[in-house]
C-alpha cells in the first residue's frame, strides 16, 4: 500500500491543509517512508487480539444535570466578531 500523490491530495483536502507544491513532494517522500515502517504491523498476526482504545478503563464518571454558567470572554480571541457571533466567510464556494 504505497501512498500516491492523489491519496495525499485527498487527505490534504479532508484535513483542510494547504501545502505548497514543493512541500507536497517532501511530504509524499517522508510519509512513504513512515508508512513503510508502519506496515511492519501489517505482517503481524493479530487475529483474535482485542483492540484497545484507552490506556486504562476505570468506571464511567457521570455529571449531575446542574447548570454551571461560566463567563468566558470570546471577543478577545475571536478572529472576527460581529453581533455577538463569530463571523465566517461564505460557506458555499462560487
Amino acid at each position: 500500500m504505497s501512498l500516491t500523490m492523489k491519496d495525499l491530495e485527498q487527505v490534504l483536502s479532508l484535513a483542510n491543509l494547504d501545502v505548497e507544491p514543493h512541500e507536497k513532494e517532501i511530504y509524499l517522500d517522508q510519509l512513504t517512508n513512515i508508512l513503510e515502517q508502519m506496515e511492519t504491523l501489517g505482517k503481524l498476526d493479530l487475529e483474535g487480539v482485542k483492540p484497545s482504545a484507552y490506556a486504562c478503563e476505570h468506571s464511567t464518571f457521570l455529571r449531575e444535570d446542574i447548570v454551571k454558567q461560566s463567563a468566558v470572554s470570546l471577543e478577545k480571541n475571536a478572529p472576527e466578531w460581529e453581533l455577538n457571533s463569530f463571523r465566517v466567510p461564505k460557506i458555499l464556494a462560487d
Partner: peptide, 26 residues
C-alpha cells in the same frame, strides 16, 4: 495530521488504525 487523517480514512482504517489498537493490547 496527514498521517493521522490517512490511517483513519475509509479503506485504511483496518490496515493501520485497527491493527495499532490491537498492538496496543499486546
Amino acid at each position: 495530521i496527514i498521517l493521522g487523517t490517512y490511517v483513519l480514512s475509509a479503506g485504511y482504517y483496518d490496515a493501520y488504525y485497527a491493527k495499532a489498537q490491537k498492538m496496543r493490547t499486546l
